[in-house]
C-alpha cells in the first residue's frame, strides 16, 4: 500500500492561510489503513485547524469529507458539490489523490496535507516499512523475494557494501542491512551460489526520471 504521514501542522496552515473555506478531503484506501488520511484523521485535522484558527482569531470554515478512493475520478465526483463550494481543498490523500483532484477540477486550488512516503506495509502496530521502489523492472525473483533497490540504502545489486555490520546498515543502526536479509533468505533456500553471478547494471529507464509513465492496455479499453 501507499504509506504517508501528515505534514507538519505549520506547513499545512501556511499552505491554506489565504483561504476562508476549506474542504478537508480524506481517502478511504491506503492512507486510511496507515492512519494518515482516513475519516478519523480528517476529523482530527478539522478539529485541530478549527481550534488553531479560533486561538489566532481567524475566521475559517472547514468542511469534512472522505471518499472511498481519491485516485479515481468517479469517487471524486461524489464530492464535486462540496469541492465547488470551497476556496481550497486540503487533501489527506497520497500524492496521487492530490493530482487526481487537480486533474478533475481544473479551477480548484488543492494542497497536500500528507507527505507520501513510500510503498510499504505495516510491520507492527504503528510501524510501517518501505518494500517497493516502483522501479518498473522487478528483480525480486533473483533476490529471494527481498528487494535490494529499496532495502539497501545504496540499491546495490551485487552484494552488501563494506558497511554492513551485525545485520544493520552503515547509515543507521535502526536500518536493517537489506543485503543481510537477502543473504539470510538465500541461505535458507540453499541458493547462496546464485550470488556469485555478476548482476549487470540495471535498466533504470523503466522507473523514475521519464516524466509521466503510462501503461496502456488496448484489450481493456472501451
Amino acid at each position: 500500500m501507499i504509506v504517508g504521514e501528515q505534514k507538519p501542522l505549520d506547513e499545512i496552515r501556511d499552505q491554506i492561510s489565504p483561504f476562508k473555506k476549506v474542504l478537508i478531503l480524506g481517502c478511504g484506501t491506503c492512507v486510511t489503513v496507515c492512519f494518515a488520511g482516513g475519516e478519523k484523521e480528517v476529523g482530527v485535522m478539522a478539529s485541530t485547524l478549527r481550534m488553531a484558527g479560533a486561538v489566532s482569531g481567524q475566521e475559517k470554515e472547514f468542511l469534512e469529507a472522505t471518499v472511498k478512493r481519491q485516485c479515481e475520478w468517479e469517487f471524486l465526483d461524489q464530492v464535486a458539490e462540496q469541492i465547488a463550494s470551497v476556496d481550497a481543498v486540503l487533501s489527506l490523500g497520497c500524492g496521487i489523490g492530490v493530482q487526481a483532484i487537480a486533474e478533475r477540477f481544473p479551477k480548484v486550488r488543492v494542497y497536500p496535507g500528507l507527505n507520501t512516503s513510500f510503498l510499504g506495509m505495516p510491520v507492527e502496530q504503528g510501524v510501517w516499512s518501505a518494500r517497493c521502489a516502483a522501479c518498473g523492472d522487478c528483480v525480486l525473483g533473483r533476490f529471494a523475494g527481498v528487494c535490494p533497490i529499496v532495502r539497501c540504502s545504496k540499491s546495490l545489486l551485487n552484494g552488501p557494501c563494506g558497511g554492513s555490520h551485525d545485520g544493520v546498515c552503515e547509515i543507521s543502526p535502526d536500518i536493517p542491512c537489506g543485503w543481510q536479509l537477502i543473504y539470510d533468505r538465500l541461505e535458507v533456500l540453499g541458493l547462496l551460489d546464485t550470488l556469485e553471478e555478476i548482476v549487470p547494471p540495471k535498466d533504470w529507464s523503466a522507473g523514475m526520471g521519464r516524466g509521466g509513465r503510462s501503461i496502456v492496455r488496448e484489450d481493456l479499453k472501451i
Binding site: 478519523k40 476529523g43 482530527v44 478539529s47 485541530t48 478549527r50 481550534m51
Partner: peptide
C-alpha cells in the same frame, strides 16, 4: 482517542 480530546476542547 485523539479525536475525543480535540472535540472536547473544540
Amino acid at each position: 482517542d485523539l479525536l475525543h480530546i480535540l472535540r472536547a476542547f473544540e
